[in-house]
């Protein structure tokens, strides 16, 4: 069992795009060399902003709802598992339905392991977290963008951040086991995924240069 007090927090503000998470994920014993984390580069022309995407482990997972083969299971401790090999029919429903874009059919070298492009997704390093260790990504992440610990620890170490685990996608509200950290003083309504994507991170450079002397 994953200890109840242990939670996963993501703070994309801290991410430096190093891909340690991606590289370490494939080193988890049961992942067989396949990485199940994605690192999204938002718009490299405008910014170096990157966002790590791990499974949010929804309370009522959309991927499982839409799976015709009933291959995706959620453990009693709240971890949504990779589709069972014996059941997955590689229909890609989960890939299309997940509001966070997590499941993938092709995980790089994954096909060579399973022989098929079966669905593989983050299982929160179940072999590690269920015996009291941290997931690989949150252990190695050098910026702390991925953090695994108790809520008290998070609040003590990150007084300027606030966790969110409820997201709205149109009519759908999704509650997740994984938390996203936002600045403590931001208004609740601000957390729209689309807003984050549409932001113009290049403001940093505006007005930075010496104006040409007339």
């Amino acid at each position: 069992m994953v200890p109840e007090k242990m939670e996963f927090f993501i703070d994309a503000n801290r991410c430096i795009g190093c891909k340690a998470c991606f590289q370490a994920c494939s080193e988890c014993d049961t992942h067989k060399g396949v990485s199940m984390i994605h690192l999204e580069t938002i718009d490299r022309e405008r910014s170096v902003q990157t966002v790590p995407v791990v499974c949010m482990h929804c309370e009522d997972p959309t991927c499982a709802q839409v799976c015709p083969a009933d291959a995706i299971k959620r453990t009693p401790d709240g971890v949504v598992q990779t589709a069972r090999k014996s059941r997955c029919i590689a229909c890609s429903n989960c890939v299309l339905a997940c509001p966070f874009g997590v499941p993938k059919m092709e995980s790089g070298r994954g096909a060579s392991v399973s022989g098929f492009n079966l669905m593989m997704k983050c299982d929160m390093c179940y072999d590690r977290t269920s015996v009291g260790k941290k997931p690989m990504c949150a252990t190695v992440c050098p910026s702390g963008a991925l953090f695994y610990g108790t809520r008290e620890q998070m609040q003590k170490e990150r007084p300027r951040s606030r966790p969110i685990n409820e997201f709205r996608f149109g009519q759908q509200t999704v509650k997740t086991k994984v938390n996203v950290l936002v600045p403590r003083d931001s208004a609740l309504e601000q957390l729209k995924v689309t807003d984050a994507l549409g932001s113009q991170p290049d403001i940093l450079l505006l007005g930075m240069y010496q104006e040409e002397e007339p």
Binding site: C18, T139, V140, C141
Partner: peptide, 12 residues
């Protein structure tokens, strides 16, 4: 110093 943290170079 790093409490388990690593970058991709150390990992691979």
């Amino acid at each position: 110093f790093n409490r388990g943290m690593l970058c991709p170079k150390g990992i691979k």
